[in-house]
């Protein structure tokens, strides 16, 4: 694996993570850590192990090997499919989860999240009637109600149109840069990862192939797949994976 960005103040660490589903190894000894305020993109083709890694970091599934150190109770998780109640209103959803998170003033927390997501005007609408993009914003807001120091987003932009996607990334980037929240998101869109990820972790068939900046990945691609260096980054990235045997 390419050398990753060593961080002096890691808020999240994973060592030698292994996960098996039957006879198939979904993760093969992954090492990973992230610092406060970092925005890390986990990229790779379908079946690379992105969702499995995030599920383990979120505490939803247990690894078969290795260990994870995360801040106790401070990891927010936003699944790929919006995890909210479609027959409740925007406000009722936020209020419910604020109460379950035992916020001292759930109404104030709800107001804060409504403002953050820009959905104050639509607070009384049934969630099922909102667009996929707005549902995803509520999905993320519910994840933020845990007031996490680490936020895990599993393919958050899937199914969103370009305008909704831009608004989503503006929102997420502000969380990291202004709120100091460590954000780790998975995607199979290499250009999205390059644009919004401060750091990129490349996975393929459960192996970590690269951990570093977007520029570092470009350099690695040029070095290992020179025949594709003149082509667009996505094509060059596919050639890079091919050279690595994936």
């Amino acid at each position: 694996m390419e050398a990753g960005n060593a961080t002096s103040a890691a808020v999240l660490q994973a060592r030698e993570l292994v996960k098996r589903f039957g006879g198939r190894e979904a993760l093969r000894g992954i090492d990973f850590e992230a610092a406060a305020g970092e925005l890390v993109a986990v990229i790779g083709p379908n079946g690379a192990g992105k969702t499995t890694l995030l599920s383990i970091l979120a505490g939803i599934s247990r690894p078969d090997g290795g260990e994870v150190h995360v801040p106790q109770g401070e990891v927010g998780w936003v699944p790929q499919q919006a995890a909210l109640y479609r027959r409740l209103t925007v406000e009722e959803n936020l209020m419910l989860f604020a109460r379950l998170e035992k916020h001292e003033d759930p109404r104030a927390s709800t107001e804060q999240m409504l403002e953050l997501t820009g959905l104050t005007e639509r607070r009384g609408e049934i969630v099922a009637r909102l667009s996929g993009g707005n549902q995803q914003r509520i999905n993320i807001a519910i994840g933020l109600l845990a007031r996490p120091s680490v936020l895990l987003l599993d393919e958050p932009s899937v199914g969103l149109d370009p305008r909704q996607r831009a608004r989503l990334w503006e929102f997420v980037s502000a969380l990291a840069s202004e709120g100091g929240t460590t954000v780790i998101f998975s995607t199979h869109d290499i250009q999205e990862a390059e644009r919004y990820g401060g750091r990129l972790l490349v996975l393929a068939d459960g192996e970590a192939l690269f951990d570093g900046s977007a520029d570092g990945l470009r350099e690695a691609v040029r070095r290992e797949a020179p025949e594709a260096a003149d082509q667009d980054f996505e094509t060059a990235f596919v050639a890079f994976l091919h050279h690595r045997g994936h």
Binding site: A58, G59, I60, P79, A83
Partner: peptide, 10 residues
């Protein structure tokens, strides 16, 4: 509604 994993995470 995909809420089960979110609810039972703690």
């Amino acid at each position: 509604e995909n809420a089960f994993p979110r609810l039972t995470r703690g």
